[in-house]
Write a protein that binds this DNA or RNA. Structure first.
Lengths: 293, 293
DNA sequence: TTGAAAGCGCTAACAG
DNA sequence: CTGTTAGCGCTTTCAA
C-alpha cells in the first residue's frame, strides 16, 4: 500500500505538500497540485485515517449506538437520515447494537473510545427516558428518540407524541365519530403516556365521553419484552352489539392497527363501514400493504 | 486522554511492557503485569487503535456493505448474526449502505480503504448475481446472499432457494392440494427462478398439472424498483368460480402472502377453508402478526 | 523478563 | 508557495 512519501517522491515534492493537496489546504500552486494529483492517481494512493488520527485527534467516524433500533420499521429511516447527513460531511458511521443490555452498552462505548470516535448518536427504539451514563472522558453525544433523566446538558431529538395523539383524536372527531376506542402502546412507554394524555384532553375539550373500557393496551408485559395482544383486545372491544361498540379504533402503531383490521375481519365487520381504524407511525411494510389502505 | 507512556511512567516500566500487557503477550511477570493493570485502571487508559494500526496494519474493524439490505425484514437477522460473531472476535463492525447505486458503492469501498478495514462483507437484499468489482488492492471479502458472476475466487454465503421452493410445493401437495397457485417474486430475481424451477419440477414429479395462469408475479417493474401488486393478482386468480380456482396459493414471500390474505378477505373467502396460503421467508413483522397465523 | 531505539504514516509548527 | 523538523501513540527489532 502506497504512502504519502511515495506520492511525494513521484511528484518531486515534499510529503507535506502532498498532505496539503490531499486535505484541500490552500497555498499550493495549481501546477504543483496537478502534478501531485497525477501521482496520487498513478499510485492509487489512499490516505491512512489511522495515521492521520495520531496527529489530528479526529477519526472521521461518528458512532451510532442503538438499543434494538435497527429491528423496528421506522428505525430504518432514522439510520438512513443519519447516513445521508453524515456522508455529506466526509464522515463514516460506525453502528453498534447493545441489544438493550447494560453490559453490551459498556462494551460499545469502549470500542468507540478505542477508535477515538468524533461523536456519538445514541438512539432508542421507543421514545423514552433513559439513564444516561457514558464513560469519561465524554465524547460529544446527541440522544435520538430519548431523553436523559436528570440531565439537561445532553442534547436530544425527540418526536412530539403529544401533538400526534391530538392529531389522531381530532381526525376521528372531525370525521364525525363520537364512539372512539383506543388500542394503545405499552402504557409504560413515554410515547404511550403522551399520546394518551393528548387523546383525553382533546376528547374532553370537544365534550365527547371517554369510554374507559374502550381504552386498552395492545401489548402485554414489561417494556422491551412485551407481547402483542392487540388482536384479542380489539376483538373483545368489537364483539359488543353494534350500538355498544366504537365506530372507530385508534391504534398505538401500525402493528396494532393491522391486528385491529384482522380482528374486524374475524368478526365479519366491514372496514371502514362498520368500524374505522386509524394507524400511527406509518410503518411502511404495513401501511403501504394493507387493504383497505 | 492518557497514553501508553503515562501508564508506563505510573507503573514504573517501559512503554513496551505496557504494550505487552495490553495485548496479552507472554513474557511479563505476574507482578509486573499486576502493577501495569493497576495503572491502566487508575488512569482509565484506553488504547488508540489508530496508532496501533500504523504499526500492525490491522484496524480491528470489519466492514459491511449492504445495498438496501437494512430495510428488509430478514436483513436485520443477517446483521444481528454478523454482529454477534464479530463481537466474539474483538472486532467492530462498520456498516455502510450503497442504496444500490454504483457511485455510493465506490465511495464506500474507498472509505473502507481509508480506514484500512480488515475485511469486508458484501450483502444484498435479494439472493442474486452481482457484478463484483472491488477496488484494488483487494481486501478479504465474503459475499452474503449473492454470487459474483464469472468469479469463483470470491467466497459467498447463499440460501438454498431451490430446496425452499421444493419444500413449499411438497407441503401443499402433502396436504392434499392439487389445484395450486403461485404468486411469485419478481421473476428477474435469482431466488424467484430457483424456487420456480423447484416448484415445477416437484409438481411434474408428483404428476400434478401446472396451471400457467395461476403462476403470476406479485411484483411489477424492474429489479430494485418493483411495486407490489400481489393483492390485485391474487384477487384476480381467486375471482374464478370455486371449481376453477386454486385451493392453495404459494407466496414468494410473506409480504405477498399477506396481500393474498387480504385479497381472500376482500372476496369473502375463508382462509384456510376456501383457500389456503403458504408464506415464505418468515418476515417476523408479518408472519407473527397475521390472522390466521 | 525487560527495555532502548527506531520507525509506522501522517500533520503541526515553523522557517524560508 | 514550499519544505524541514519534530512528534502523535503505538509496535517491531534487537540487545541486555
Amino acid at each position: 500500500m502506497q504512502t504519502i512519501r511515495d506520492v511525494a517522491a513521484m511528484a518531486g515534492v515534499s510529503d507535506k505538500t502532498v498532505s496539503r493537496v490531499v486535505n484541500g489546504e490552500p497555498n499550493v500552486s495549481a501546477k504543483t497540485r496537478e502534478r501531485v494529483e497525477e501521482a496520487i492517481a498513478a499510485l492509487e494512493y489512499i490516505p491512512n485515517m489511522g495515521a492521520r488520527l495520531t496527529r489530528t485527534n479526529r477519526s472521521g467516524v461518528i458512532g451510532l449506538i442503538t438499543d434494538v433500533v435497527s429491528t423496528t420499521p421506522n428505525s430504518v429511516d432514522i439510520i438512513r437520515g443519519i447516513q445521508d447527513r453524515i456522508s455529506t460531511e466526509k464522515q463514516s458511521l460506525l453502528i453498534a447494537n447493545t441489544s438493550g443490555t447494560r453490559e453490551e452498552e459498556q462494551r460499545v462505548w469502549r470500542t468507540f473510545q478505542e477508535h477515538r470516535i468524533d461523536g456519538v448518536l445514541f438512539a432508542t427504539m421507543y421514545h423514552r427516558h433513559i439513564t444516561f451514563d457514558p464513560p469519561k472522558p465524554a465524547m460529544p453525544t446527541v440522544l435520538v428518540n430519548c431523553t436523559a433523566e436528570g440531565r439537561d446538558d445532553v442534547p436530544a431529538v425527540v418526536p412530539d407524541d403529544y401533538q400526534g395523539g391530538q392529531a389522531a383524536a381530532e381526525f376521528a372527531l372531525d370525521a364525525g365519530h363520537r364512539r372512539i376506542g383506543f388500542v394503545t402502546l405499552n402504557p409504560l412507554i413515554l410515547a404511550a403516556r403522551l399520546r394518551g394524555q393528548a387523546f383525553e384532553k382533546t376528547m374532553q375539550e370537544r365534550g365527547v365521553t371517554i369510554r374507559r373500557d374502550w381504552i386498552r393496551s395492545g401489548y402485554a408485559g414489561g417494556v422491551g419484552e412485551e407481547r402483542i395482544c392487540a388482536f384479542d383486545v380489539a376483538r373483545d372491544i368489537l364483539s359488543a352489539p353494534a350500538a355498544d361498540r366504537p365506530t372507530v379504533l385508534l391504534a398505538g402503531n401500525d402493528e396494532i392497527a393491522m391486528q385491529c383490521l384482522f380482528a374486524a375481519h374475524a368478526l365479519h365487520l366491514r372496514v371502514p363501514d362498520d368500524v374505522a381504524i386509524i394507524g400511527f407511525d406509518d410503518f411502511q411494510k404495513i401501511s403501504a400493504q394493507v387493504f383497505p389502505r
